[in-house]
């Protein structure tokens, strides 16, 4: 069980448990008629499904803080169906489905360290460092005079993820990728 919070403690960025699911307060507004009751107007986002809704709370309303925990976990391998991770201090292992891993599947290589977000002990999200280095497994040779694609071409990374990158990139090179935007940053020597 998370700690109990009062309406006065509501603010942007707070994480609450509502009907058994974790929610993030993405927007918050305090309003109060001079002599009347305070209203705490919140926009809440479900941290699992991403759906949002607005709700107004009043003084006296009580909440449970979402029982969230972040653990450093290393990605071990993908067995074709599931993604296996290990906590490097406790050696506990976890299996996640592709859906649970989400966007991070594009950037996961063996031994990659991740921040795993757990809600009541259950993994609900994997976050990666802002930048990862990935090897190019396919990059069609650059034909001189070929500027059709505006100076970029598709590049396949070792994870199977395809990005757009500069024409000079060749197979076997290592690239720095921004995991927040899924874009090429630079070549890594």
């Amino acid at each position: 069980m998370g700690t109990t919070l009062t309406a006065g403690e509501l603010r942007k960025g707070l994480k609450l448990e509502i009907d058994g699911e974790p929610y993030l307060v993405v927007d918050f507004e305090f309003s109060k008629p001079g002599k009347g009751q305070a209203l705490y107007r919140c926009r809440l986002r479900n941290m699992i499904t991403g759906s949002q809704f607005d709700r107004t709370y009043r003084s006296g309303d009580k909440f449970t803080a979402a029982d969230l925990e972040e653990q450093q976990m290393q990605f071990l391998y993908h067995d074709g169906k599931r993604y296996h991770f290990m906590n490097t201090s406790s050696y506990d292992q976890l299996e996640l489905t592709e859906e649970q891993v989400g966007e991070a599947i594009h950037y996961l290589t063996e031994n990659q360290m991740t921040d795993m977000l757990l809600f009541q002990g259950r993994p609900i999200g994997v976050s990666l460092p802002n930048f990862v280095n990935l090897k190019v497994t396919r990059a069609d040779p650059w034909l001189k005079g070929d500027t059709a694609a505006g100076g970029t071409k598709p590049i396949t990374l070792e994870t199977g993820f395809v990005i757009q990158g500069p024409l000079f990139i060749e197979e076997g090179e290592v690239l720095k990728i921004d995991t927040r935007t899924g874009t090429y940053v630079e070549r890594v020597k």
């Binding site: 309003s31 008629p33 009751q37 209203l39 107004t56």
Partner: peptide, 11 residues
């Protein structure tokens, strides 16, 4: 209805 009053006043 004080609660309804305060809420409707603001909203």
């Amino acid at each position: 209805d004080q609660t309804r009053f305060d809420t409707d006043l603001v909203e």
